[in-house]
Design a protein around this nucleic acid. Structure first.
Lengths: 177, 177
DNA sequence: TTTTTACTGGACCAATCGGTCCAAAATAGC
DNA sequence: GCTATTTTGGACCGATTGGTCCAGTAAAAA
């Protein structure tokens, strides 16, 4: 997962993978079948760790609104960090291979859906707590926030200018007022 | 440009390029030097055509606000269309190679900056015309809109659900009220 | 200790990668 | 028609691609 995340699908060679795993080529094929199968497994793995972590974060937060704020703030904080330059694995997959790889595309969609769902939960709880206007469609807001979050990460990757990112976050979150 | 746009840098082979150009390998290297040089030229070409077209559109529009609305609406309209699945070439480059290719990254940043600048112009004219609240930082709004637009295209690529995209657009543009 | 299971490195595969070079052919200018 | 310039196809390069196969070895189970 880490290697695919850093170098993309096409940019990752078998050698890169066996090297990172510390495993022989023979064992690799015996265990995973092919590069592509491992790729799909890596996406699933990303869902089960990173996405799942985000989902838990939103679910476990006291305040829905605060959780949303924190998620956006984190993107700004991490901007420019070496590890952050990889961006979101799901987004990378969406833009690199999802056109020519229906299986990967399906997994990516599912992952993004889960994030959206988690945000939706936070929105609903925020509305119940009166932190977010209750007259708004919670799903629409969740879609908006998820899309904005991905856009923000993408921008952070292309140009990690904190001040500009702060601007974007401020205006984005003003939709929750 | 078209080939790189569709298949990405790593996903494009010399054969793909010479084939699309209808040119021999020898001529290719005589004319462009290397695959990478052509790639950089392709990004520049994208700027000079697609980005330039967008810039002209914003500059030539009567109403700044209407131009912004139209830009977002167009993303929704085009969602799901075969050609649209390629997404924005600059965004694709940002997420595929910009980490390991400083030259491409610089060009991509420049392209995104030009889009942002064009949007900024539309915002300013919208503010002068009273279509957009004048008390807001025009650059901050432009950054916000540009980021949202990229996020929207990305979402359209991963999941071309018109209704959901409409939701996102509506909320995004509500920041201009 | 013996047997079974797990894993190894490396030979091997055909195909393709980006890239170079050149003699021959097509095109252009005169 | 003749030269000068482009452009051509294709041979060739070493390296690498994803993938297969297997004899040998190390570890675990009997």
């Amino acid at each position: 997962m880490q290697v695919f995340w850093s170098k993309g699908y096409k940019g990752t060679s078998l050698h890169d993978l066996t090297d990172a795993m510390g495993v022989s080529k023979s064992s690799f094929y015996e265990a995973f079948g092919s590069k592509h199968e491992l790729f799909l497994a890596a996406i699933r793995r990303y869902e089960d760790t990173v996405v799942e972590g985000l989902v838990r974060f939103f679910r476990g937060a006291e305040s829905g609104r605060a959780a949303i704020d924190a998620a956006f703030e984190k993107v700004v904080e991490c901007a420019g960090a070496p590890d952050d330059r990889r961006g979101c694995f799901l987004v990378n997959c969406a833009s690199e291979v999802s056109v020519h790889d229906p299986q990967a595309a399906a997994r990516v969609r599912e992952g993004l859906r889960r994030v959206e769902q988690a945000i939706h939960g936070a929105v609903v709880r925020g509305q119940e707590a009166g932190e977010i206007p209750g007259d708004r469609d919670a799903w629409a807001l969740a879609r908006y926030l998820a899309t904005s979050l991905n856009g923000l990460r993408l921008r952070a990757k292309a140009n990690p200018d904190r001040a500009a990112l702060e601007d974007v976050v401020r205006i984005t979150l003003s939709a929750l007022e």
